[in-house]
Computed example of a mutant assay.
Amino acid sequence: MSDPSTESVPARVRSDVAHNARVWNYWLGGKDNYPVDRAVGDQVTGMYPSIGEVARADRAFLGRVVRHLAGDLGITQFLDIGTGLPTFNNTHEIAQHTVPHSRIVYVDNDPIVLAHARALLTSSPEGATEYIDADAHHPEQILRSVEPTLNLRQPVAVMMLGILNFVLDTGEARSVVSRLMDAMPSGSYLVLTHPTLELGGEGNEEAMRFWNEHATPPITARSRTEFAAFMDGLELLDPGIVSCAQWRPEPGAPAAEVAQFGAVARKP
């Protein structure tokens, strides 16, 4: 995608406007992005130099959480909403490496993401991997589409990493989470990350304002209190709400704080 003029671009794709999935891919060192994505990504980095660390910490958090849920807690079903472009250590790769019969449903509505996902996201013979075109704003559509890949009578890990920040109205974002978790059985888990202007993220405010003027979709940060409210009625796993880099870091690994909340909670 580095040279859009030589590649087939899905009809719905705007290659003249930066898009989050592609800019995030750029920050992670991927090649599935356009010049406009790199230009906006560089501008944001200039305004908020630690954004690349946030992206990498968020990705590492995903790996630690999936290994813990699958390997230690016996969760074998994952609903990953707002997947983004496939890169390294995707949810299904980690889950199925840990427990080969794990079943994963990815959800996104970006055409570039969908095109790449269908080509790259394969499954272990024992498990299943599915990709559905749906918007996080419409949880009922998601829930109608996940079966039969997922059995909603058995525990599911609902993964929403860096996605609720695109649901700008906090009441609506809470409603999305509630409707999803209401449909999950006891023993299911909610996994969240979310950008914040706390945890040293104050410098990100100007960068977010620039993003909302020059890229899509628009984004918002939230406070610890607002983030915690997404998990009302659920049981937080230790260490609770922390910088995603500091959620059960690997022994001996650096865990510098980044301005991205991370948490995992269980439905009783």
Rank of each mutant, 00 (worst) to 15 (best):
S2E: 02
P4W: 04
P4V: 06
S5Y: 07
S5F: 03
T6R: 14
T6F: 07
E7C: 10
E7Q: 13
V9Y: 13
V9M: 09
P10G: 03
P10C: 02
R12V: 01
R12T: 10
R12E: 15
V13M: 10
V13Q: 02
R14H: 10
R14E: 05
S15T: 15
S15H: 03
D16N: 12
D16T: 14
V17Q: 12
V17T: 14
A18N: 01
A18P: 00
H19I: 02
H19V: 00
N20E: 03
N20Y: 09
A21K: 06
R22K: 09
R22M: 08
V23Q: 05
W24P: 07
N25A: 08
Y26D: 03
Y26L: 03
Y26T: 05
L28S: 02
L28N: 03
G29Y: 08
G29P: 00
G30H: 12
G30V: 09
D32W: 06
D32K: 01
N33R: 08
N33S: 11
Y34W: 11
P35S: 06
P35L: 01
V36Y: 03
D37N: 07
D37L: 06
D37W: 00
R38Q: 15
R38V: 13
R38I: 09
R38L: 05
A39H: 10
A39I: 01
A39Y: 07
G41T: 04
Q43W: 00
T45K: 03
T45F: 00
T45V: 06
G46E: 14
G46R: 14
M47V: 08
M47P: 00
Y48H: 08
Y48G: 00
Y48R: 05
P49Q: 12
P49E: 09
S50Q: 15
I51Y: 08
I51N: 13
I51L: 12
I51A: 07
G52S: 13
G52E: 14
E53Y: 01
E53A: 15
E53M: 05
E53W: 00
A55K: 00
A55P: 11
R56D: 11
R56N: 14
R56W: 10
A57M: 06
D58Q: 14
D58A: 12
A60V: 01
A60C: 01
F61M: 11
F61D: 06
F61E: 07
F61I: 01
L62V: 11
V66K: 11
V66M: 02
H68P: 01
H68Q: 13
H68W: 12
H68N: 07
L69V: 00
L69H: 10
A70L: 05
G71H: 05
G71W: 09
G71Q: 14
D72R: 14
D72H: 12
D72N: 14
D72A: 15
L73T: 07
L73F: 03
L73C: 12
I75L: 13
T76N: 09
Q77D: 10
F78Q: 02
F78D: 07
L79K: 02
L79M: 05
D80P: 09
D80Y: 09
D80M: 05
I81W: 06
G82P: 07
G82R: 06
G82Y: 02
T83N: 08
T83M: 11
G84T: 03
L85S: 02
P86T: 05
T87N: 09
T87R: 02
F88K: 11
